[in-house]
Each structure stands twice: as C-alpha cells, then as structure tokens.
Amino acid sequence: MSTLTRGATDGRAATAPAPAPARRLRGLAWLVVRQHRTALIACAVAVVLGAAWIAYRRGAMLDTLHGAGWPAKPPSEVDGNLLNRIINDLGSMGSSLAFLPVLLGVFLGAPLISADLENGTARLVTTQSVSRTRWLVWKVGFALLLSAATSGILGLFYAWWWRSAGPFAPDDWLNSPVFAVTGPTGVATALFTTSLGILAGALLRRTVVSMAGTFLVSGFALVAAEMFRPLLDSPRRLAYPVGAERPALLDHVVVVDEWFGTASGKLYGWGTCAHDSSPEACRSALGIVDRVADHYTKDQMAGMQWTAAAAFTVLAAALVGALLWRARRRAL
C-alpha cells in the first residue's frame, strides 16, 4: 500500500522530523514569545531609548555641573537656576517612569488574555495538548517577567542618574518619583499593575474595556499608594528650643510635619497663636518651649521601599492566584 497509509499504521513513530531551523525555544515558550513579539520588541525599544536618554541627560547634567566648577566649588555656590533645571529634569523623567507601570498594565497586562478570548485563540491553544493552567502560567509568567525587566532596568538607570546628581538631587525623596521608580518599588508596582490588567482581561473578556478598567484602577491605586506612603514607617521626631536656630540636619531630610511642644511633650499645631497679637506670650502661656519637626531621614528610604514593594508583590500574587484558581475551576 502507499507509504501514506503505512505511516498511519506505524502510528506516532512516523512523526516526520521535518527539516526545521534550530529550535532555541520550545513548546509554550516559543508560542508565547512568538505571539507577543510586538510587546517584547516595544518593551526592548522602550528600555533602549529610555536608557539612552537617561545616559544622555546625565552626561549633559555632569558637563554643565563641571562647567559650573563643581565639585571644586561647594554646591552652595552653584547657580540656583542650574539647580532648578536639574531638579526639573530628574522630576519629569521620574514622572514618566512612575507612569510606566500603568502603561505596562494597560498595554501588556490587559490584552494578554482578553485578546485571546476575543479572537478565539484561547480556545485554539487550550484544545491542543496543553492544559489551560499551563498555558496561563506561561503567559502570565512571560508578561510579568517582561514587565519586571522593563521597569527594573529603567529604574536602575534612573537611580544611577539620581545618584550622580549627588547634592543637587532633590532632598524630598518621599514625595518625588524616585521612591516609586527605583529599587524594588518600581518592579513591584509594575508586577501589580500587570497582574491587575491580566485579571481584568480574563474577567471582562473585552480588550478595550479591560484596558480602560486597568487604566482607571491602576492609576487610582498608584495615587492612593503615594498618599499612604508615609504610613510605611513612622517619622522621626526632632525637638529644638523655640528661638534657637533650626538644626542643619533638617535641611536634608523630608520634614512632614512641624509642631510646638511643651516641656512635658504635649504638642500644639504649627499655627498655634499665629494670629494672636503677641504670639510669644500666647505660647509661653501654653507652656510651649520647643519646636518639634517630624521627618523621615534618607536611611529610612530603602526600608520603606521594600515594605511598599512587598505590599505590591503580595497584591500581584493575590491577583495571579485568583486568575489561576478561577481557571482551574472553570473555563476561561
């Protein structure tokens, strides 16, 4: 009989080793990379361009500072306009990078599964010889890895720039993008927004709807995270006598609140007696002897970043866990 029919009787052994290019990626890894090639390229381009831009701006900044005589001259003698320009530069790049997790959630997370549900390709893949869960694990893993790599690498470059600015970098690390962008926070935030987008896509099943939803919820979450950031650690408290000179320490920390204090430690608001005809008399009547400044010092930053990162990572894990738990129980 024909060779074709003989192939059939030989069964699986007859599977043709067709001439194929060397396969570096196999199985679901190949499929996921091929399917999300565009996202992969977009992220790579964003990383390369972002890193190049940071390197360029950093170089330009150092050139200007060296031109202005730093570090030979002390920073206090450097032109204030130049200082403002550096702070603005760092600030605008930082804000863009702080927005990056939202973009990753909207453009990488949200379409990850919803697009497959919309085009029916979810059904195509899960009716091959791979289970739903395995497919989801690969896809989610890919998206989270890509998301983490993109935000992580750009965060490292930004931190490098920030460090190079040395004394010219803004002192207020708590309320500037550097907290959200560098270190573990940037990566964890991106993991959270991406997971949020993925789960939204799986639940809402429509790409555009889940992109919009992810944009709103992740934007809201990042604003909320910034608002509650001071709760990550308790501020330190410094008291100094009323009328004494403000300690130099307070120039380079993040002061979040200031009070008046009595000898017994009772606190009065900053505005106490401000409108009185004789503020000093009014204060001494209350027994106020100290000024009190609540502040965060630079050495608290890393700990707070790790706490924030841990919170975002736990949220991300919960979202991914919910997705997989749901997929195990019922069809997508």
Binding site: A14, L31, R34, Q128
Partner: peptide, 28 residues
C-alpha cells in the same frame, strides 16, 4: 480561530510545539 499574524508555517509549528504526537508530514 487562528493567530492572524502567524504565517502558515508558524501555525503548523504551533501544532508541533504544543502536541507531543504531532505529525508534521500529514499537516504539511
């Protein structure tokens, strides 16, 4: 449903990557 941006060859490769008993000759 098929991946619209895949080529025919890549679509068959998907079959090969995801199915242990894949018969490339029959598919081709």
């Amino acid at each position: 449903p098929l991946f619209k941006r895949f080529t025919v060859e890549q679509t068959l490769r998907m079959g090969r990557e995801l199915n242990p008993g894949w018969d490339q000759r029959a598919a081709e």
